[in-house]
Design a protein around this nucleic acid. Structure first.
Lengths: 249, 249
DNA sequence: CGGGTTATTGATGGTGTTCAAGGGGTGTGG
DNA sequence: CCACACCCCTTGAACACCATCAATAACCCG
């Protein structure tokens, strides 16, 4: 069985008539990831306020959403697929800041210009909001602002945890932290599973963890030899989660 | 001249009669760092709502504010001094998450339990709020929530920038990034200066940058030999800012 | 002063990078 | 259906950066 068919892409939105073939909802009311997203802050009677200013964008793999430095005219909620967020140095070094999955908000800061780039790793759907209109709505709906703040706080916590990983963890620990963290992230939407989809490439993982692609590859290869994980198409299956967690002690 | 006397500690609060000898304000109305803090979101007529639930705490160097995992019964605004925020691993490795300076809010996430520890590096004053009362107030004052969100967003941006430093910068670049970044941070309050106060020790800088104390010490020592910086008590003076910035290319 | 902490400096070594080559999968075109 | 190209991943060998270990120096406060 291909991992694609059990990937979290689209599975978050139930297969109703209000859902397209690719899993993107056709209306906010029928949106399956609403409860994970900012939109969930609004009641059913208010959801129209969001729907009035949203429009959906479909992305193909490798398609950019915006570039670092672009004027932030729009901000986004991911509804399906995975988006890669990254910052680039002049000499080509890259740091992947994070991976946005369905429910995640991109542009939490409501800032004038994006401080990172975003592009699609997989086929993806995102809801786009005009920043000014969204900011206006936020000004009128304290619950929306509260939700936005909760999401930003949550992101801040993830960022701080990642600082520990980048600053003080060894290579093996970093990869273990990534696999376990990513499983949780995906699991919140898809339901937890021993199979972890990895829509990002080895280079992306390396750039997220501050390592090289060779180091990531070597560590995963060793874990496969040691039967800690199993190679499956576009992902890995965790055979011995305890050994992974032990790598973090 | 000692750097202490020109340190940003207390200088943010003008030397009025409403200010104690150590620079801590005696009332919110006369608080000099209000404009940098969350409290600045409230107008003069609303400041009493804050004042009603605040009480001031004075800290000596090395005195803890709270520990990782503690129940977050209070949250804080720093009014003078520097607070170190850190996370610890079981085996003694440490990651300094950040340094909180006057105006900074500690506990932005309004979460149940702290995910990091905080302790004073210098003599410091902090305003303490009961978390529940503060959360209630935030619920009644959207402007306060908005300010809280703006501060959290700003922190998130700093965290993301720091991820790049930790993930992709070489040792020398990290130290340069720290010096320049810290100068800006201090400069926002104290006014920019070629003299950078360093209330934290070398070990703290190392734990912030994901390096060892020896590496930090060697790099600073070399820059002193090369007349890029000058050693002053509890800080450094920048002689050649361009060379520092060049280290970041 | 003297004791303890923190910082500096030197010598050595290890973890992860760099450089290099080959393997494996996928899509395309003949 | 096969051949080929391309990209990504894997694997190996050598190296470099920074960590570690160790000793001394400076500092701070009692």
């Amino acid at each position: 069985m291909s991992l694609d068919s059990i990937s979290y892409q689209g599975t978050a939105a139930p297969n109703h008539s209000c859902v397209n073939a690719d899993g993107a909802p056709t209306s906010c009311a029928g949106c399956g990831i609403k409860r994970f997203a900012v939109c969930g802050a609004l009641g059913d009677n208010e959801i129209g306020d969001i729907e009035r200013i949203v429009h959906t964008i479909k992305l193909d793999p490798r398609e950019p959403v915006f570039q670092e430095g672009d004027k932030a005219e729009s901000i986004f909620t991911v509804t399906s697929g995975t988006i890669r967020l990254q910052r680039d140095l002049e000499d080509g070094r890259r740091q992947v800041i994070g991976f946005a999955v369905p429910g995640d908000f991109i542009g939490l800061a409501l800032e004038d210009h994006f401080s990172f780039s975003a592009d699609a790793l997989t086929k993806a759907s995102i809801c786009s909001f005009d920043r000014n209109k969204f900011t206006d709505l936020v000004g009128r709906k304290p619950l929306l602002l509260r939700r936005l703040h909760d999401m930003a706080s949550h992101e801040l916590g993830i960022a701080q945890e990642h600082m520990v990983v980048l600053g003080r963890r060894r290579a093996e620990e970093r990869v273990a932290a990534f696999l376990l963290g990513w499983r949780n992230r995906v699991g919140r939407i898809q339901g937890n599973s021993v199979t972890i989809p990895l829509p990002m490439g080895r280079q992306d993982i390396a750039d997220y963890l501050g390592l090289t692609i060779e180091t990531v590859s070597r560590i995963l290869a060793r874990w496969m030899r040691e039967r800690i994980i199993l190679d499956v198409p576009n992902g890995v299956r965790v055979l011995d989660a305890d050994k992974l967690k032990a790598a973090l002690r």
